Amino acid sequence: MGWKIEVVPIPVADVEKAKGSYSERLGFTVDHDSRVNEETRVVRLTPPGSGCSM
């Protein structure tokens, strides 16, 4: 059986700042961005050429 890592969760204190740093500075693609409730927001980013996102 072939195992691979597809998503790595990384909790951050400031989602907007983290999203900007990874997408604008490092060129990560924003795959998903949604607010679950007032306290919870889910953003998924993928590095260029990678099969694993965070």
Rank of each mutant, 00 (worst) to 15 (best):
M1Y: 07
M1N: 10
M1L: 12
M1V: 14
G2T: 14
G2A: 13
G2D: 12
W3S: 11
W3V: 14
W3F: 14
W3P: 00
K4H: 13
K4F: 09
K4T: 12
K4G: 08
I5P: 02
I5L: 15
I5V: 15
E6S: 11
E6Q: 09
V8E: 01
V8R: 05
V8S: 06
P9G: 06
I10L: 13
P11C: 07
P11R: 09
P11K: 09
V12N: 06
A13Y: 06
A13G: 07
D14N: 14
V15G: 02
V15F: 02
E16D: 15
E16P: 00
K17A: 14
K17E: 11
K19P: 00
G20N: 12
S21Y: 11
S21H: 09
S21V: 08
Y22A: 07
Y22R: 07
S23N: 05
S23G: 04
E24G: 04
E24Y: 02
R25Y: 04
R25M: 11
R25L: 13
R25K: 14
L26E: 09
L26F: 15
G27S: 09
G27K: 07
F28R: 03
F28K: 05
T29G: 03
V30E: 14
V30P: 03
V30D: 02
D31A: 07
D31L: 15
D31Y: 01
H32W: 13
D33L: 08
S34I: 11
S34L: 12
S34C: 05
S34H: 12
S34F: 15
R35A: 12
R35Y: 01
V36G: 00
N37E: 09
N37T: 05
E38V: 04
E38A: 15
E39C: 02
E39Q: 14
T40V: 13
T40I: 11
R41F: 02
R41I: 03
R41K: 10
V42A: 03
V42D: 04
V42N: 06
V43G: 05
L45R: 03
L45Q: 01
T46M: 07
T46G: 00
P47S: 10
P47W: 04
G49E: 05
G49R: 05
S50Q: 06
S50R: 02
S50V: 00
S50Y: 01
C52K: 00
C52T: 15
C52P: 00
C52F: 00
M54T: 11
